[in-house]
Design a protein around this nucleic acid. Structure first.
Lengths: 144, 144
DNA sequence: GAAGGAATTGGAATGATTCCAAGTCCACTC
DNA sequence: GAGTGGACTTGGAATCATTCCAATTCCTTC
């Protein structure tokens, strides 16, 4: 759960522009929601939390903001099967593990020095641009 | 693109039961469609191809059959982001690479001896039950 | 402070998938 | 070989996350 270097850890500190993205009031609220509680919320979850901070915000805007944040690489969109997308402000390279007992999603990082592409039998010259790895299973505490 | 051991390579050879799943006419058709052209079709694609073999088959049945095949582990459901699910009869452990130039999906296997869980910094005692890894990028031929 | 472009908004539309209730098929028994 | 029960199939309706749209509203700049 490390925060990305050079990014604010709390919404109070969000500047007015970031990564080339103009941070409007709504985008700040949405980004702040994601930073403040990093539990991989759905757009619907984000919408409800954002409304507490800005009651006038609309669901369409939340979708728009999330997309803008994803496009500008401030937030990762996380998909498990075809369930509603979840959003994650952790910018470190990581993958996601869902505890089947609780539904909670946890960030998991690669062991030091591991490069996934070394492990796969990819055709010569393939250029990997994106990678999404999701795991499901049981956490120790729920595994009894 | 290896075929799973002990499974038929062509729909002509599909038995009347497999892995505990009763293979009805419709399920045979659907499974045959997947075996005969392994291009990771969507449910819609499967439906169109199945109709050529059995014009009376319905889309609902195709969904039902695909689900039965997935539950009985004869077929893998493959998800890229939130686009329509695709279906793959390759039962070997493998992951999926989508060529961004053509949209085609290719099966990719791990290098010999690699166990993904060795590479991840998972909390002690976690039991991984499912793993989905998808890649996007460019194939050599389209990478110029 | 006026103009222009971007962002926001509510509501309608989309589209993959699921649900449902009715009909059909099939395996098994007598 | 007909009867029965349960599983399977079917068409159509429903669901629901997401996208689209057209009309404001908001900023930024001149």
């Amino acid at each position: 759960m490390q925060q990305p270097i050079d990014l604010p850890s709390h919404s109070d500190e969000i500047p007015s522009e970031l990564g080339g993205l103009r941070l409007t009031k709504q985008r700040k609220v949405v980004y702040g929601v994601l930073l403040d509680l990093r539990d991989h919320p759905t757009a619907q979850d984000v919408f409800l939390r954002a409304k507490e901070r800005m009651p006038s915000i609309s669901l369409a805007t939340v979708y728009n903001c999330l997309e803008a944040l994803v496009v500008h690489k401030l937030v990762k969109q996380v998909n498990f099967d075809r369930s509603p997308s979840r959003y994650c402000p952790n910018l470190e390279e990581h993958v996601h593990f869902q505890d089947e007992a609780t539904g909670e999603i946890h960030d998991v990082i690669f062991k030091k020095g591991v490069k996934l592409e070394d492990l796969l039998d990819l055709p010569q010259g393939v250029e990997v641009r994106e990678l999404e790895l999701t795991l499901k299973g049981l956490m120790p505490s729920s595994n009894q």
